[in-house]
């Protein structure tokens, strides 16, 4: 939230300040540029952290690769050659700089296991993960927010109680468990949906979407529930505000009160939750893709970590970090749209 200031009142007004009224495009542009510069620093720190963290893990990628590829019997000299080939014999700082230099040129490194550039594979899988993420986010907004509003407006009714109960369950259910149950019910018993896997859209659109249904449900469940809860509680709070009473005193009907006067105020905390959910969905892709055997970035990360495949782990985490940073910037911009008290300065 740094860089955002919330002006509660500005009683004094000079002709110069008038420019601050409303959202000026140039303000936002400057703000975005500054946030992007900050983001670069964040990403640099993340890259150092990931680089060191993966190397702190027990095990040696060269040995692991050698054992897994049935190449046992290599002489120490040959192992050293291999190590040299991947630059793993250099001092850590130098290894890091080598990698960073490559990243800046779009080269995320070469996998010890597949002996191919990891960037190509990551960017092949990225759209799959992002597609699931976007559908999940869309589902969360389309279901979570309206359900929360209905629940708040009909507070205390059976609908509200149902929403509260279901959303409590929703935020507590483990995704991997839900995935297995869904497969059992909808694939094995009812045979409505394929059990798992992924088909590209261009190959078979029908199959593509059928296979996405359960993964999207799993990866959005938490955020649907979290958004419903947040929307409900913030709408309840807003509906008790003085300005809502003012709106009633003008003779407006309930719909105008809810959608014009309450919703925009109520959405401000919801946007925060949405940002957290988006990050959750990105992180949750590891589990969902593993459960449903989807060849996305998340599953790639899981196998890379267990193989100590440095280049993949570093590359994927860097991309996840960049995504999260981008989501944060986006969220901050949306705040400014929702709350005129927020100024980009």
């Amino acid at each position: 939230m740094r860089g955002l200031t919330r002006k509660m009142s500005s009683p004094v007004r000079s002709p110069f300040r008038r420019d601050l009224t409303g959202l000026k495009e140039s303000d936002v542009t400057t703000y975005i540029v500054r946030r992007l510069l900050q983001s670069i620093v964040v990403l640099l720190l993340v890259s150092i952290f990931v680089f060191l963290a993966i190397r702190l893990m027990p095990g040696d990628p060269i040995k692991l690769m050698v054992y897994e590829s049935n190449l046992t019997g290599l002489s120490p000299q040959q192992l050293a050659d291999l190590r040299h080939e991947y630059g793993l014999d250099k001092p850590l700082a130098l290894q890091y700089l080598d990698w960073l230099g490559g990243v800046l040129q779009g080269n995320l490194g070469i996998s010890v296991f597949t002996k191919t550039p990891v960037a190509k594979e990551i960017f092949r899988r990225l759209p799959i993960t992002f597609e699931i993420g976007l559908w999940s986010l869309l589902l969360s907004i389309v279901i979570g927010v309206p359900v929360g509003i209905i629940s708040a407006v009909r507070r205390g009714t059976w609908i509200d109680q149902l929403v509260v109960t279901l959303s409590n369950i929703g935020v507590t259910i483990p995704v991997f468990w839900l995935g297995v149950i869904l497969m059992l019910v909808f694939s094995l018993y009812l045979k409505w949906l394929p059990v798992m896997g992924f088909t590209p859209l261009t190959e078979d659109p029908g199959m593509h979407f059928k296979q996405l249904v359960m993964p999207v449900i799993c990866s959005s469940l938490f955020s649907v529930a979290a958004l419903a809860r947040q929307t409900r509680s913030s709408m309840l709070e807003v509906m008790h505000q003085d300005y809502i009473r003012t709106a009633w005193s003008k003779g407006l009907n309930e719909n105008a009160i809810i959608f014009k006067h309450a919703l925009k105020n109520g959405l401000i905390p919801v946007i925060t939750t949405l940002g957290l959910s988006a990050r959750g969905i990105v992180g949750g892709s590891t589990v969902v893709e593993t459960v449903f055997s989807i060849p996305g970035m998340g599953r790639l990360l899981v196998s890379a970590v267990s193989n100590l495949d440095y280049a993949y782990v570093q590359g994927i985490i860097l991309i996840i970090a960049a995504t999260v940073v981008a989501i944060n910037v986006l969220i901050d911009i949306v705040y400014g749209w929702a709350d005129p008290r927020i100024r980009y300065s």
Binding site: Q241, D242, Y243, R245, T246, A247, S249, K250, K260, H261, K264, N265, A338, D339, P340, R341
Partner: peptide, 15 residues
């Protein structure tokens, strides 16, 4: 029509 007590909170901050 009514005029309320708290001018700080009786107007909608986002409109």
């Amino acid at each position: 029509s009514m005029i309320f007590q708290e001018p700080m909170t009786s107007l909608n901050p986002v409109l």
